[in-house]
């Protein structure tokens, strides 16, 4: 008599050896039960309050899109201003964000999908201030998807055979259904996600227009979620077109009204980027001048709005809005 299928052991054929955020679906459920606001209570607050309350030193941080494209830049600036420490960043689909946060002293670990290799990163690695764990963009969003499904891992048809696999939390097992080898990757449930959206109501019902990387996955997978929104809209408007809602309120802990919150990047359909400042930040990172960038654009100001008023000016913001001519699809 053979043992029941469930009792048969499933050998691990190969596994990565890197640290990864603890996988704990039941712990996540318990966190949700005890902490998420399932009552329709307003949660609109300033960026300062949201970051004070919901970003803690040592947190695993997921941000959506990136500093150049619908990034939650007001919240990134606030994290830098509040000098958060020892964050572990989900560095997927990123050019400058990881380098900015590392050089600002906020991030000391990063899971890598893609981020710009640059002098600040090299220096931090050399000095032992940064640890990097290897994934790919899609493996990172797959991990968030598993986290958003409340399950411990997902199988994937990529990533196997790479050296990234060996420096990650992935495992190769024999698929119990087909008998073929299959890679599984650990679910990712970040401590905190920061996500910039086009519209939200005061409860956190949020609309994203256009494409994105993993806005919904990050929102559902993360213990604490801060939404920054270009526009705060009425809940009646949300109810009029529920099909347009991307993220439901009960996943969201804080809503920040953040007009032009992706500056100097673009918020698609609303405003284009500021090309000069996009080049400025690339130059700052590639020439190891991040501190000068932060001293010019972040640290002198109490708020992001103050920076926009004093450093950018209404005329330029209006011009960025006027240049954004592709409008089809960017409304509910």
């Amino acid at each position: 008599m053979t043992a029941p299928a469930a009792r048969r052991s499933l050998p691990i054929l190969r596994e990565g050896t890197s640290a990864y955020l603890k996988v704990d679906p039941d712990g996540f459920r318990a966190y949700v039960r005890d902490n998420k606001q399932r009552a329709l209570t307003p949660r609109l607050m300033s960026a300062r309050e949201a970051v004070e309350r919901f970003v803690a030193d040592g947190d695993y941080l997921a941000y959506e899109c990136n500093y150049l494209m619908r990034g939650p830049n007001e919240l990134v600036h606030e994290i830098i201003r509040q000098e958060k420490k020892q964050l572990w960043a989900a560095g997927k689909f990123t050019y400058v964000d990881v380098a900015l946060l590392v050089d600002a002293g906020c991030v000391s670990r990063a899971d890598c999908g893609f981020f710009l290799s640059s002098p600040p990163i090299d220096r931090a690695l050399r000095e032992g201030r940064l640890e990097v764990f290897e994934y790919s963009n899609v493996i990172m969003t797959t991990r968030l998807q598993a986290g958003a499904m409340g399950i411990p891992f997902l199988p994937v048809r990529s990533f196997g055979g790479t050296d990234g696999f060996d420096h990650s939390g992935a495992k190769l097992i024999t698929d119990p259904y087909t008998g073929d080898p299959i890679t599984i990757v650990p679910a990712l449930n970040p401590d905190v996600a920061i996500i910039h959206v086009h519209q939200a109501d005061v409860y956190g019902n949020a609309r994203v227009f256009g494409t994105g990387i993993s806005d919904v996955e990050s929102a559902l997978a993360s213990r604490k979620v801060i939404i920054s929104a270009e526009e705060i809209i009425e809940t009646d408007d949300i109810r009029a077109k529920p099909g347009a809602t991307s993220i439901p309120y009960y996943a969201v802990d804080a809503v920040v009204h953040s007009p032009h919150g992706s500056y100097p990047g673009t918020c698609p359909g609303y405003y284009g980027s500021d090309p000069e400042v996009v080049f400025e930040i690339f130059r700052a990172i590639m020439t190891d001048q991040v501190q000068a960038y932060l001293d010019k654009w972040v640290r002198p100001f109490a708020t992001f709005a103050e920076m926009l008023n004093e450093r950018v000016g209404a005329a330029k913001l209006e011009a960025m809005t006027a240049r954004e001519v592709a409008k089809d699809g960017y409304s509910a």
Binding site: T141, T211, G212, T266, P268, P275, D328, G329
Partner: peptide, 30 residues
Amino acid sequence: FEPMMTMVASRAVHHALLWGTMNSAGLHAQ
């Protein structure tokens, strides 16, 4: 395109047949 703005940006994604996510692209390839 605007400089560097070849993804997510409105000019780059204009009049697509579908707007998805990174996971949808990965799954369609899979």
